[in-house]
């Protein structure tokens, strides 16, 4: 149950506190959503969690282990990261891209992958339903397919914690549902999944746990349906909305801006 714990994290950039004392946890076996308006500090906080950026203060622990004090490679073996939409001009096949996920596990001087690594890569592609694309050029895939390959690359890292920064932003609705469904499956299998999201209805539907970030601080944390109240939508997002009971749970109907 322990999962990821973020304790009092401060991140300064250009003399400004982007994240100010953020505190929350993302339990193991659950999909935790990180939501908040633009500029709330979601991406910055995620950068710190995955080790791209060092927090000025605060603690980041995963299952009790201190992530900040950990070596880069060790950390990359625990925690994998998927960006909003990462493209490349390099000529890489889908299998090549997924194989990047083995980097933290390989000695620096090793040429090529071992057979074990190749198995891990194949299994990761299988898990995201992209196995038959293994030989395709990555750049020829659709946005949704590319994002699934990125998730496969992250899975090839064999992480315990998967962190995604708005992984569904540029995808059509079908691809969004596919990706979120996939993440739900990974959490059920015991992984800890933390993702930044913009679409609150998707957050309601797919997240088990929700953290609301506003101006660098966590202003609410809990079950999605309990967190996303009408007063919070007004105070954090500046919108009037009503929660309607739909067939699959509550749905937010937006009515206007404050």
């Amino acid at each position: 149950m322990e999962g990821l714990r973020v304790g009092g994290v401060n991140i300064r950039r250009g003399g400004r506190n982007i994240v100010a004392g953020a505190q929350f946890s993302a339990p193991a076996g659950k999909v935790t959503g990180l939501v908040g308006p633009n500029g709330a500090g979601k991406s910055t906080l995620i950068s710190a969690i995955v080790g791209i950026e060092r927090p000025e203060a605060g603690e980041l622990t995963f299952e009790g282990a201190n992530l900040v004090a950990m070596g880069r490679r060790e950390r990359a073996g625990i925690c994998a990261y998927v960006e909003q939409s990462a493209s490349t001009e390099e000529r890489l096949s889908v299998a090549d891209v997924v194989a990047l996920g083995r980097i933290p596990h390989l000695p620096a001087w090793a040429v090529g992958l071992g057979t074990d690594d190749e198995t891990v890569v194949a299994e990761a592609l299988e898990k995201v339903g992209m196995a038959r694309f293994a030989g395709r050029q990555f750049s020829t895939l659709s946005g949704g397919e590319q994002q699934r390959v990125h998730i496969a690359r992250a899975l090839a890292q064999e992480p315990k914690l998967l962190v995604l920064d708005e992984p569904t932003s540029h995808l059509d609705i079908r691809a969004q549902l596919q990706v979120l469904h996939l993440l739900g499956g990974l959490a059920k299998a015991g992984g800890t999944v933390l993702l930044a999201l913009h679409d609150l209805n998707l957050a309601l539907r797919f997240c088990d746990w929700l953290v609301v970030l506003d101006a660098g601080q966590v202003v609410a944390e809990g079950r999605p349906a309990e967190v996303l109240r009408e007063d919070l939508l007004a105070s954090v997002y500046g919108v009037y909305a009503r929660l309607i009971e739909g067939p699959g749970g509550p749905v937010i109907a937006y009515e206007g801006t404050v």
């Binding site: 080790g51 791209i52 070596g71 880069r72 490679r73 994998a80 990261y81 960006e83 980097i103």
Partner: peptide, 9 residues
Amino acid sequence: GDKSAASLG
């Protein structure tokens, strides 16, 4: 890119 490289250790 840099971020992705950093996240790979």
